[in-house]
Design a protein around this nucleic acid. Structure first.
Length: 273
DNA sequence: GCCCAGGAGCCCG
DNA sequence: CGGGCTCATGGG
């Protein structure tokens, strides 16, 4: 199925991808990604955090300002390999100490930044990377960036330390409203269990499969937005690491290809303590 | 205590 | 180019 210049996406696969979207949307409805702090019904505090109230189903005008765009960009970094709950707490802390602008973010010392975002994990890495990203957006104003073609913005984002393919596509799609399909671990898991792809498939192979089936146009922007969010919704609750196939809407059609015994998460031996 | 969460970079053969 | 390691908190 794969070749040197990427996978061959045939008609059957494209139909599958289009059909998968229809079924997910019918099951779960509009998801309203990406969440914003201002849409939280209450301020984040120890009792309401993690309730994911910042979503906005059926409202595709979000984000509405450069501040909100930058908030999404920061959130995309903070949530890397981290639950949104922990990233959200970090973002709320940041917003209390600064307006979320590149300029003000750079003014915060790295050490201070690290303390503010502690809850998101990897705080030493992420604090330095937030500085790098803030500097990029200071030198490359969003108003200029959005006028460029999506592929060109993507290349620029990927050149920034701390932004890999998934984060770049999340920023393009949810912050900059550019049609770039987001692939994550959930997407790979869902597709592989349904018999699509194999170990040779890389990020770009999955991305191209989706983008061949649903072309990256302005009019498909909403579908890109919802599709990724729907996959997350489905995989968090049903197609989990240990899947709940009995509750799954694809129960009768999915081949349920569950790969090998999962290897344990690497854990640092703590000798000095 | 364990596993996991909306990854990415770097190093090494 | 692929595999393995590192980063690290908070919730279940």
């Amino acid at each position: 199925m794969s070749c040197e210049v990427g996978i061959l996406v045939n008609e059957e696969l494209m139909d599958f991808i289009k059909s998968l979207y229809q079924q997910l949307f019918k099951q779960y409805g509009p998801q309203g990604w990406w969440p914003l702090l201002r849409l939280q019904s209450n301020q984040i505090n120890p009792t309401n955090r993690g309730k994911f109230t910042g979503y906005h189903p059926n409202n595709y005008t979000i984000p509405e300002s450069e501040i909100e765009i930058f908030e999404i960009i920061l959130g995309a970094i903070l949530t890397q390999n981290t639950s949104w709950t922990n990233a959200e707490t970090a973002l709320a802390n940041l917003s209390k100490s600064t307006s979320l602008t590149p300029k003000e973010l750079i003014a915060i010392p790295i050490e201070t930044l690290a303390l503010l975002i502690k809850s998101s994990g990897y705080f030493n890495q992420k604090s330095t990377r937030l500085h790098i990203i803030a500097e990029f957006f200071l030198n490359n104003p969003i108003s200029n960036l959005v006028s460029l073609p999506v592929d060109e913005i993507r290349i620029q984002l990927l050149a920034i330390k701390g932004i890999g393919p998934e984060t770049a596509d999340s920023i393009l799609l949810y912050a900059l409203k550019k049609p770039s399909f987001v692939i994550d671990a959930y997407t790979r898991r869902l597709l592989s269990r349904m018999g699509i792809g194999d170990k040779s498939w890389k990020y770009q192979d999955y991305r191209m499969a989706f983008q061949s089936a649903i072309s990256p146009t302005e009019e498909n922007l909403r579908i890109y937005n919802e599709y990724h969010a729907l996959i997350v919704q489905h995989c968090v609750h049903i197609c989990k690491k240990t899947p709940l196939c009995e509750k799954c809407l694809f129960n009768t059609t999915c081949p349920k290809i569950i790969p090998k015994p999962k290897k344990k998460q690497t854990r640092k031996k703590n000798f000095k303590k």
